[in-house]
Design a protein around this nucleic acid. Structure first.
Lengths: 204, 204
DNA sequence: CCATCGGTAGACCGATCGGTCGATTCACTA
DNA sequence: TAGTGAATCGACCGATCGGTCTACCGATGG
């Protein structure tokens, strides 16, 4: 079943002391669920976090709770990154959106890039009642709202549809980058996004 | 772990007799891996297909071989659907591409729709050496080539990039439709695709 | 008539899954 | 200093995983 051995059981997280078991668990689970998928075994997470089995259940109630919490905290950091990227674009909502896509365009170049952690988890967890789905939906909804607000500020004729389109481009680029990075999908998505953004100023 | 009981162990496939074990296995595995994800147990597939355990290993060598073969055969049917959709658009490559997106736009309305089976499998199988990845990449590459040929025939200035963009739109729409169908992403993607297609005739 | 062969049935394997629990250690604080 | 609660270790649970194996069945064809 396993063709390549990528699971590294060594306690890489042990250096990150000073953090409590909860933090170590979240960090290890975040790393492993992203790299190996949400189906990593609990034991691998516990070993990597150097945390007792019982602590997991005391803090998160179980694996599903841990996975959901990992995504929740990841969404906070991610959205902070979005906000920073937008801010770097100044005051003009169009340049702000361009800055956001410039930020997103850099992500696939990161060493261990495997696509969007939210999309990956969403598609990996077949059970529609898994608590992670709500977390993911909420995150994507906030992203869409963020973009929609910029589009509205820019006077886009249909900011709702355009918001859906831009998030769709982001997710599509992430999926493609994870599978076929040679197509450079991030750049292709940014070019398409530019078409949407420029709809706000038909006669530039 | 399981919040909703969607696994139906009843031998729904038993009616499909006349087919050999191999066909029944492929049919059952296709249905179950799409509905439950690629992590369905082998026993569920065997029960649903009403096939002996040994037949699976004789025909496909193991679960991974079965999953890969399911995707391979699914890709044939899917690409036939693409070809038919294109053909329904007549001779003009632009109307052919529009017909293709019209075809794709109908897919999410199907009852058990859960997104693109290839994207889902690709993101669910964390092991990069799983044989299914090659099948999936090949399928998406053929789709891209199909689209690229139409764009080239239409005289698009950059058919390669535009091909990547249209496939990216398709995958992004599938991912979004599986998670947040209320956003009607297929329509949003088609509208964006129209922008790409119309680049072929700047002064329509 | 019997040998072969694809299929079935089902026991069985080691490994791993998520989860529970008792016993112990440790740091902090009252 | 004694007590308390959090975190530790590790045994243990039933279930399930993918995979192997033996035995049997029935049709086909020499």
């Amino acid at each position: 079943m396993v063709y390549s051995q990528v699971v590294d059981t060594t306690k890489t997280q042990k250096a990150a002391r000073g953090e409590g078991p909860r933090e170590r668990l979240l960090r290890a689970a975040g790393t492993l669920t992203y790299r190996e998928g949400t189906h990593v075994g609990i034991d691998a997470i516990l070993t990597s976090a150097d945390v007792a089995r019982r602590s997991l259940y005391q803090h998160f109630g179980g694996k599903d709770g841990l996975v959901a919490e990992v995504l929740r905290e990841t969404s906070e950091r991610t959205e902070q990154g979005y906000a920073d990227a937008l801010a770097s674009g100044g005051d003009d909502p169009r340049t702000r959106l361009r800055a956001l896509f410039a930020h997103l365009e850099k992500l696939p170049d990161a060493p261990g890039y495997r696509g969007c952690p939210f999309v990956n988890a969403d598609l990996s967890l077949a059970d529609p009642a898994h608590p992670a789905h709500d977390v993911i939906r909420a995150h994507k909804r906030r992203l869409r709202a963020l973009i929609e607000a910029e589009l509205r500020a820019a006077g886009h004729p249909d900011p709702v549809t355009a918001g859906v389109q831009l998030v769709l481009l982001i997710d599509g680029a992430a999926v493609t980058a994870a599978s076929r990075p040679d197509e450079r999908p991030a750049a292709a998505a940014s070019a398409l996004a530019e078409l949407v953004i420029s709809q706000t100023a038909p006669a530039s």
